[in-house]
Nucleic acid binder design. Structure first.
Lengths: 239, 239
DNA sequence: ATGGTATTGTACGGTATCGCACGTTATATG
DNA sequence: CATATAACGTGCGATACCGTACAATACCAT
């Protein structure tokens, strides 16, 4: 059995749990590696585990029941969150896909264990429910970003969000993937990347983007960034 | 006290509740009128009541902490749903605004009553949680629609969604408002409206759009419509 | 070292949508 | 009935982004 001390974990949700609530889950932790391209959940298939991310980056994609290529990213999850939100909401599946963007680690909790724990603890429901709330805000901000901001601003937003959720400055990501994330052409990402690099915001290498000047990125992303993140921090403290 | 029989209500969530769960809420119902332009909830202000919509249409807007005009619609709610989702998720506020688009009626439930009822009933948590899930999918589809579909398709999507949630063919809505909903210029709505009218899909009058041929609208909206609605129906039956 | 493959760079015509400005028409108000 | 006002219609140059195509480069595997 793997039952690490709560405060040795990276996952911010687990760290913030009431110790009693933590114990309800910790006994069932299954540490798993997250490998690039892995699907943690499939569209409309039973979700067997919730995944509390310890390290790495996971994209939530709308499946859209269409040719593969026009899936769009609706949210991202890192060590601040979890995958498997439908399990918190009384169902075992959703039409979304959870795709590992950057390899890492997670603690998996079997759905029945989570379910029982939720039934026993109001505070656990609150803590994880508030995470759902922050995720809704994040998806809402993505709607806003796609409606009112150009590619460069959205790229800046994505980079900063990924930096937050990955906890480091080096983001392993290709233009191809970014074009999917942002819902734009791949060459559009290339030129936008050049602009950001020319402005000293990032350094771009093959398959990697490194944040050089976060403040400048924030200025470019402007109001497309920040609201969801502020809401997350507020909600985490509310517990 | 106003405590109507469950099956005399319009609201689909309330109708689908387990009768025991219904009773937990029904004693506290406060019938309210929804008037055009009214804010049911304000950004970052305490949410005093949940509103189960009986009639009318409510838009959820991302507040975006910016000049008034660039708020964007992230979701809509009619008699199939409720306003006040954060109350289900362990918090009393959110950075979104709930704006009445079409006048109607709702049953308001004080937050403390809802909270207590949720604490007492796992099935109630499940039923309302599944609505949250359907709302997440709806917002996700809005991301997808804005990313991959032109104004005409998005207009068709919005019209059909509004028709669903209002339960009638006549939609009282101005181009000005639609431009806000779709995140586009107001004249862009005007010309798109003409296209749809020319194709016999709708009839447009001042401040009113009437659905004439829903099937054609569905064909135009294509994959931007349907996923969230299918998910809603699936989840409602799961209870 | 070499060839193959994934990734990135560049180009170019086409178009959806924008921003802005100003008519025009319908409905409400006195 | 007259007038105001809200809503809708139209025009036009600008531009961000698209679709497509292809070239160049970095990395990987044999």
């Amino acid at each position: 059995m793997y039952q690490p001390h709560q405060l040795r974990l990276q996952n911010r949700l687990l760290r913030a749990l009431d110790p009693d609530d933590y114990r309800l889950l910790a006994g069932a932790f299954e540490p798993v590696q997250l490998t690039l391209g892995q699907h943690l959940t499939e569209a409309n298939q039973p979700i067997g585990h919730a995944y509390f991310i310890e390290e790495g980056l996971v994209s939530l994609l709308a499946d859209t029941m269409r040719p593969a290529a026009d899936r769009v990213e609706i949210g991202i999850v890192g060590y601040e969150g979890m995958v498997g939100v439908p399990l918190l909401l009384g169902t075992d599946r959703s039409p979304h896909v959870a795709l590992v963007q950057t390899e890492g680690r997670a603690l998996a909790v079997p759905a029945p264990v989570l379910d029982e724990a939720l039934g026993m603890s109001r505070t656990l429901r609150g803590a994880l429910g508030r995470y759902v709330q922050s995720l809704i805000v994040q998806v809402g901000q993505t709607v806003y970003a796609n409606a009112d901001f150009n590619i460069e601003a959205r790229l800046a937003r994505w980079i900063v969000m990924a930096q937050d959720r990955l906890g480091r400055d080096e983001l392993p990501i290709t233009h191809e993937f970014l074009s999917l994330m942002l819902g734009v052409r791949r060459p559009g990402v290339t030129t936008a990347t050049h602009t950001l690099e020319g402005a000293g915001m990032i350094r771009a290498q093959r398959g990697r983007i490194t944040v050089l000047d976060r403040d400048k990125l924030l200025a470019l992303a402007a109001a497309s960034y920040g609201l969801a993140e502020a809401e997350y921090e507020r909600l985490l403290k509310e517990g």
